[in-house]
Write a protein that binds this DNA or RNA. Sequence first.
DNA 1: CTTACTATTGAAAATGATTTTCAATTATAC
DNA 2: GTATAATTGAAAATCATTTTCAATAGTAAG
Lengths: 141, 141
Amino acid sequence: MKSELAVLDEFIRSKGLRHTHQREEILNIFLSTEKHVSIDELFKLVKRHDKRIGYTTVYRTMKLLSESGLCGEIDFGDGILRFEHKYGHEHHDHLICTKCGAFIEVMKPKIEELQERLSREHGFTPMRHRLQIFGLCKRCS
Amino acid sequence: MKSELAVLDEFIRSKGLRHTHQREEILNIFLSTEKHVSIDELFKLVKRHDKRIGYTTVYRTMKLLSESGLCGEIDFGDGILRFEHKYGHEHHDHLICTKCGAFIEVMKPKIEELQERLSREHGFTPMRHRLQIFGLCKRCS
DNA sequence: CTTACTATTGAAAATGATTTTCAATTATAC
DNA sequence: GTATAATTGAAAATCATTTTCAATAGTAAG
């Protein structure tokens, strides 16, 4: 499997864009985090390494990573956009604890299959989906 | 089944709030729309009936209706909060066409059941969930 | 290596939906 | 009616996100 940096570089080249140290650094820091970071959180992490990188650059770089397929955007409905690792990761759904904010990543092929069938029954061509289950995690319930 | 207005009134009384003609009017106009209205859309409809009702009141009243269980808030991930009828309506999921914006309401008990089981497998107590399938509707595909 | 070209950066300002503020108004209980 | 406190609506504040723009820095060509 290609490295994430190679994937980014390939994407950048194919679009006639440029490889910059900011982009490389933001990618590395994103990869080193445990998923689901907001732009603001990521910006703070990035600033620790290099104070001169601005919020805007983090914002723009995450959009770039999204386009290149390296990260996925997730919306838990609280008005803050978060990002998760996507390259080399399977699709999954989320269990979200409404008390402590913890999330669990889950996967149920049978549900995926039923969603596919449900869509077809309505003449709908599914491209992607989002399943979020809100409730209480083991510790909070 | 109690009327929606009766439900609202009961909720209002139970909280020591007041019945106002604005709240009644906004509820009626919301009920007369075909679901999935944003606050902005609803405000425009309301203004046709009564120019003196402000945006803020519509906003606050919809929050009130949400709390009372008369409407549900839906987030399609485009940054705009929409509302749908909830009282006397079954839970359902959404198929959302990414081309024309159409949405289809669907229901698959088997999926609900599997979600329940999936949650339990992870020691999670599910309260509510959100399933949105994005793709192309019959006409657009 | 140097130049020319143009993408990128970062600070600040703009955007846009949502939420709060506050003085005036209005519903409700007594 | 009167007193009390909730409600209203205009305007301002919030807050994440997005755009602007002048300065900076990759990249390719010479």
